[in-house]
Nucleic acid binder design. Structure first.
Lengths: 138, 138
DNA sequence: GTATATGCAAACCGTTTGCATGGCT
DNA sequence: AGCCATGCAAACGGTTTGCATATAC
């Protein structure tokens, strides 16, 4: 009888029909291995993989993050013109952006209440509403 | 007796103690000459100046936009990872981002009502809250 | 005259791509 | 076997910078 054990990370990849290659498993484990949400840049994830002793090229990190986003497993967040952030939390929620160290964290979506939103102009519909709360350390 | 005429554009520069050089006057006129708000990228402003027959280098457009932002005359808006947008409307207000043609327009701030905002985490204070409403043409 | 702005081209940095190699099914 | 993923290095696009020249005050 075949063992049917599939951990969280394996399932995460399988749910998007992405082959569980060594590199993808490495990155996916770093991203969702512990079930927590994470915000990374290509560089930070590359560094994390390198520090973990895993060999992945930076181009593959970029390609993989893009693949994860295309597959709906992650979301790309635009907060800083100079680099891209990727979020494992794909639900609609606001973000804290720490201006001092250019870090991104989640804000609880229940704590944000938008009572009224501008109407979409003629011929357009709202695709999404991005809320970024910029923080300064006191 | 000296003529004291100072038009809107001249005053705009003067209010920020910026020397009214030919290039700055050219760009400032394109930006606020008619009193309307405008959203530009370095490239779009450079093109506008070129089409108007004015000679300004692209590097100067970048430097000038940065100078205008540093002086508090404009605001840089982050909506698209790949380029920077600059807004002549420095008041706090939400933006529409047209995903189809990567264009930025203002949304009326009176139409946005945020009833509740997440508390800033320990040791931090809210610097600003950016709201970007992404639009898709229907 | 002196400080500052400009132009140019080269440097920069994050990201993407082409192509040859290697791995998954 | 066949398709897809990977790695590398080169290309890319937006932005910045160093330095010589020109301009405002």
């Amino acid at each position: 009888m075949t063992e049917m054990v599939t951990d969280h990370t394996t399932q995460w990849l399988a749910s998007a029909d992405l082959r569980p290659t060594r590199q993808r498993m490495t990155l996916a484990t770093l991203l969702v291995g512990d079930g927590k949400n994470r915000h990374v840049t290509a560089e930070s994830l590359y560094d994390a993989a390198s520090k973990a002793g895993e060999k992945v090229s930076l181009a593959t990190v970029y390609n993989t993050l893009k693949a994860f986003c295309d597959a709906g497993l992650m979301r790309e967040i635009t907060v800083d013109g100079s680099k891209s952030y990727f979020d494992t939390n794909i639900s609609d929620h606001p973000h804290f952006f720490w201006e001092d160290d250019h870090t991104l964290t989640d804000a609880a979506s229940e704590q944000l209440e938008i009572a009224r939103l501008p109407d979409a102009p003629e011929g357009a519909e709202i695709a999404s509403v991005d809320v970024v709360i910029r923080l300064r350390r006191t």
